[in-house]
């Protein structure tokens, strides 16, 4: 009796993650062990540079340029659309003719995905 109970309970413990993590079956009744696998997905790692009058590119502090708090909403860019809005605000703040270069990558289930390169002036878009 105890052996049957052990096999049944241990089998249930193993069946949950096997069903979801191996066979992709999603159910609230089966527990997988994929802790923190979705945390951070979508977050954008972005860096900004602005061309100086002498032609050199210098790091651009988006918080200083936009007069925003460093621990406020602007700290996190969570999507490509949000990045586009930040770029638009930076270009407006920098003034007409500004040359801002943006390098950005976004966290996906497959790893980092490049969503913006600094080959062109982002304000020219």
């Amino acid at each position: 009796m105890r052996l049957l109970a052990f096999i049944a309970i241990a089998g249930f413990m193993i069946a949950g993650p096997v069903a979801e993590q191996v066979f992709g079956v999603q159910s609230a009744w089966l527990r997988s062990w994929t802790m923190f696998s979705a945390i951070g997905l979508g977050v954008v790692d972005a860096s900004f540079e602005i061309r100086q009058p002498d032609g050199a590119l210098a790091p651009l502090d988006r918080f200083a340029m936009l007069g925003a708090r460093r621990d406020g909403r602007l700290k996190w860019i969570d999507s490509g659309e949000e990045l586009a809005l930040v770029i638009k605000r930076l270009c407006t703040a920098a003034g007409q003719g500004a040359d801002i270069r943006v390098r950005a990558r976004q966290a996906t289930r497959g790893g980092w995905q490049i969503i913006h390169t600094d080959t062109e002036n982002a304000c020219a878009d």
Partner: peptide
């Protein structure tokens, strides 16, 4: 299964830990 979930390029490359670090 926690290790199994991490046994791919996304985690072993460091990308998932970096994303979690940026997120928090």
């Amino acid at each position: 299964f926690a290790a199994f979930d991490k046994s791919g390029y996304a985690f072993s490359s460091g990308a998932r830990i970096e994303a979690i670090f940026l997120w928090y």
